[in-house]
């Protein structure tokens, strides 16, 4: 079975985010970067799938050259192949362009049965690339997956559980499929020292727009359907009121105030 996993480099969730307001892009100078936390679950699910069913894993990332770090981390966890989709033309890609480039990379990797992605990224937060990727590739869309029940590569079948509003949906789908996973589907492992040392020596293959055969007019800022017209800092919440006094008195005041909002039915 051929397994692909998409990994995105994002600013450290602890980092202070700065926008380059005139340019409308993220100012990445001096900011620590990490693998998107949701993608760590996708990578672990790919590793578990390989262990349970046999197969090989190709890890794909799209981003600036520095995004090679997330692939090096994946190599340390013993994925078989990696590829970094990087090209100046990709800068400023929207979700559709991102799905379009990743789809080209998955096609180039060849004969992929299942693609794992995280549910969303912690920087863009859109949570739609997996569904767009499935649509572009014509693969079965399986989003918000909380458990992979079984994969039958020979029979081209996968059964998963999806965590959606109000409960869990069990879906049977034809392979190939795109599976986006939620937090908690597994416990991501950490690379060991030997793996890290070995990975540090491997050269990361880079795929440009030309290598992928993508239409340069459909990617990056040129391909984006929307233009940023305004970046603003929302007004801070007004200073609140600290309730003081004995517990009895505080409980009395706060319950009155909440009842006065006329929200409690």
């Amino acid at each position: 079975m051929k397994i692909a996993v998409c990994l995105k480099q994002v600013p450290d969730t602890e980092a202070e985010i700065k926008w380059d307001i005139p340019k409308g892009t993220l100012s990445r100078d001096g900011m620590d970067s990490i693998t998107n936390p949701f993608d760590e679950f996708a990578l672990e699910e790919a590793l578990l799938t390989k262990e349970n069913y046999d197969g090989e894993i190709v890890a794909i990332s799209m981003g600036p050259e520095g995004a090679a770090d997330v692939l090096r981390n994946a190599l340390a966890l013993t994925v078989d192949e990696v590829a970094l989709c990087t090209d100046d033309a990709f800068a400023g890609s929207d979700t559709y362009s991102t799905a379009y480039v990743l789809a080209a990379a998955i096609k180039k990797a060849g004969d992929v049965d299942v693609v794992f992605t995280g549910k969303q990224s912690t920087d863009g937060n859109s949570g739609v690339v997996a569904a767009e990727l499935a649509a572009v590739l014509g693969f079965a869309p399986l989003t918000y997956v909380s458990k992979v029940r079984s994969i039958d590569a020979a029979g081209k079948k996968i059964v998963v559980e999806r965590a959606i509003e109000g409960g869990t949906e069990v879906i049977e789908a034809k392979l190939p499929a795109v599976v986006s996973v939620i937090k908690g589907i597994n416990e991501p492992r950490l690379p060991n020292l030997m793996g890290i040392r070995k990975a540090s020596k491997i050269e990361i293959p880079k795929w440009s727009a030309g290598d992928l055969g993508v239409d340069a007019g459909k990617v990056g800022a040129a391909g984006a359907s929307t233009k940023v017209v305004e970046i603003a800092v929302p007004p801070p919440r007004g200073a609140g009121e600290i309730l003081k006094g004995e517990i009895e008195e505080i409980a009395n005041t706060i319950t009155d105030k909440l009842i006065d909002l006329k929200v409690i039915k």
Binding site: Y96, N125, S126, G127, V128, E132, A135, V136, I164, S225
Partner: peptide
Amino acid sequence: TSMGTDVAAAAAAQLGFGLCTD
């Protein structure tokens, strides 16, 4: 929501339309 997002994303990708989320 999970339902709205899945339909919107797949339809947008199928047609190549722009998508603004959340």
